[in-house]
């Protein structure tokens, strides 16, 4: 897939002249200003920028979680606004995986139940859910924690559970918002390695929001944001570029 010539097929995700305002009247705040971006299948993209620059806002819009005031998002070349609400839900459920800024683990429920949540929402039967969930947990050496309560784990374990949840549905793309922000550098490195392993081995597209330059440097491509605008593009050393 990564060998396909640019332009031959529509990009996985494309943002065209996105604008997003928060608030009303005088306190109106331009969070995204004329942002255009395209993301190809199989690449890893870093969205870099200072806190408050609009990275999370952009990621949420690309993941069809938020609405825009101007511009459009295309998925496989199709305008997302033309998709029914049901189709959008389906898309997020089957093709997107999420790692948010916080863990968002459901307290009081088991690690396994947390991990298979996307499958439960899809309607996968319990036995198959369990099988796939356990297989995904085994990948992160968390199989023995499957019955534990998710909230009883350490920070690093939690983030690995969150990663497991993001990949259990075998998505096309994983959106990760500051995936290492809450972790110490050693644990952070493990999580990073796992993310890039998924990208390499399974061809899962990565969209990583970060203010960590080292993490950004590991990605194929970086886009930098400042005050809601994209300011510079950096291509990976391999020379893959849009």
């Amino acid at each position: 897939m990564t060998n396909t010539l640019p332009g031959a097929v529509a990009p996985l995700l494309e943002a065209r002249r996105l604008s997003k305002w928060y608030g009303k009247g005088d306190s109106r705040f331009h969070a995204l200003d004329d942002v255009s971006l395209s993301i190809r299948r199989g690449e890893s993209l870093a969205i870099v920028g200072k806190s408050g620059s609009g990275k999370s806002t952009l990621m949420h819009i690309l993941a069809l979680l938020d609405s825009v005031d101007a511009g459009e998002v295309l998925v496989d070349g199709e305008d997302a606004r033309r998709l029914s609400r049901r189709a959008v839900n389906r898309l997020r459920n089957r093709r997107f995986g999420f790692v948010f800024q916080q863990f968002f683990l459901t307290p009081g429920t088991s690690v396994l139940d947390n991990v298979v949540l996307p499958l439960t929402i899809t309607g996968v039967p319990a036995a198959e859910r369990r099988r796939r969930g356990m297989a995904a947990l085994a990948r992160f050496d968390l199989a023995d924690k499957a019955r534990n309560r998710a909230t009883d784990l350490s920070g690093g374990q939690k983030q690995r559970v969150v990663l497991t949840r993001a990949l259990v549905g075998e998505p096309d793309v994983i959106f990760a918002d500051e995936p290492t922000g809450n972790l110490d550098s050693a644990t952070g490195a493990i999580v990073e390695d796992e993310l890039f392993a998924l990208n390499r081995e399974h061809g899962i597209t990565l969209v990583i929001v970060t203010h960590d330059e080292d993490l950004a440097a590991r990605c194929d491509r970086q886009v930098h944001m400042r005050d809601g605008r994209l300011v510079e593009f950096t291509s990976a050393p391999a020379g893959v570029s849009a």
Binding site: N89, L91, R92, N93, F100, F104, L117
Partner: peptide, 9 residues
């Protein structure tokens, strides 16, 4: 929010 983000209607 999480469930809805993950496509729950």
């Amino acid at each position: 929010g999480l469930m809805k983000a993950m496509g729950m209607s």
